[in-house]
Design a protein around this nucleic acid. Sequence first.
RNA 1: UCCCCGGUAGCUCAAUCGGCAGAGCGGGUGACUGUUAAUCACUAGGUUCGCGGUUCAAGUCCGUGCCGGGGAGCCA
Length: 460
Amino acid sequence: MQRTRIVELLDRGEGGPVLLKGWVRTRRDAKGFSFLEVNDGSCLANVQVVADHTPELLPALEGMNTGAAVAVTGELVESPASGQRWEVRASGLILYGGADPEAFPLQKKRHSDEFLRTIAHLRPRTNKYGAMLRVRSEMAFAVHDFFRQRGFFHVHAPILTGSDCEGAGEMFRVSNLEPEKAVILDPRARAEAEFFGRPAGLTVSGQLEAELMALALGSVYTFGPTFRAENSNTPKHAAEFWMVEPEVAFADLKDDMDLAEDLVRHLVRHALSSCSSDLALFASFVDKSLMPTLEGMLSAPFARLTHAEAIRVLQASGRSFEFPVHGKSDLQTEHERFLCEEHFKRPVIVYDYPKEIKAFYMRLNDDEETVAAMDLLVPRIGELCGGSQREERMDVLVRRMAEAGLPEDPYWWYLDTRRFGTAPHAGFGLGFERLLMLVTGIANIRDVIAYPRTPGHLEF
RNA sequence: UCCCCGGUAGCUCAAUCGGCAGAGCGGGUGACUGUUAAUCACUAGGUUCGCGGUUCAAGUCCGUGCCGGGGAGCCA
């Protein structure tokens, strides 16, 4: 008989013979028979299995403790008891792998996130982390679906890179040299001995490469892992995280903001429609305000205002901030939170930032003071997307690189795109884990990625 | 990296002024029951994060290191 996944079993709506395979969540023994709660990861729901203590079933049943991997053949029938619509009357049981109850760390009770992080290899077997991983998968699909519907091409930016995308943070160095050999070489000899003949690192952003491809294919996006060697110890930062980076030729900042808003709304809408039972778990156990937050994001357009207007709003608020606001200052976390959680009570896009606080590749506005940059801020998380219209004018780009103290040489290929057939273009980066935090209500980035990499943590 | 809080049984946490190491859950054993975070009884389980110090006496006080959480900075 072919195995049926639980999600399909419960969807089927009719009884009959079944074979299901999964992991035992709990076993409750009665006189003469036992109840097994079996979960196979296909959905949040378990199936209750009723197994009589017959000579055929009893030997396997005895090893079926919490955590055991099992196969159950039997009959799907309507459950006579309340608590579940369907249950399986077992006629055959196979124990694939037992789990010693004295050693198996997952209990049938709520565990703290901090504890579960120490057993990240087993936490997918809990309701919360199983749900998170299913939602994560579904959101990745929705990202591709959104762009495909709009004629974007998915491009793969390199992960190994020789370019240090300025302003995006510290890069992890990659080397094939034995560490003890590398230290004795002088820099030039060392560079020659390196695999690539030059220093290499893990990408901090696929943006520059995506720009090149947008200036050939029109509309593209990258979706892949990125790496930052920043010593950030916060619930919103990880050393390895996934980023969605669209890049669009012949687009300006307004188009960019529209695209970011559409993308975020599409992803939230998709989560609500395609992950409803997993989201219900988060709404009742993780964040009580999850549903109103997500539905609120769909009900009204995001607020948009310039950085200068944001400063005025903050100054007029009468609020005393720890960091006082002034014209050329970047927005601090407390300012971002005030704007979206208290003032507008919805997502906010701040644009036209002072050029001093933004990267060299952002397009200089006509006022010569601001650049066409934008940040999309959402309640609780803060910056979800950051992007800009790119500087497409060769002379201005060269001038801004000089002001930033950047050499032109390493960027010869980037500058070439401005030399040959340059065009206005814009793009942004969306932090995929931050999106998941938004959609699940999970408060720590370490809990929306299967194996989080943060300073001092590389287990699993 | 900076500031604040914490680290006690497998997990979540108590322990009064510095004075015998505790509970719930989980585990084991038994009873009972169409159960469903089952219930009831009994039971085992401890380097109180490490190192150093003060004291007759340290889980508790001091120093230091490590780890975790929250906040900040950096950002996505």
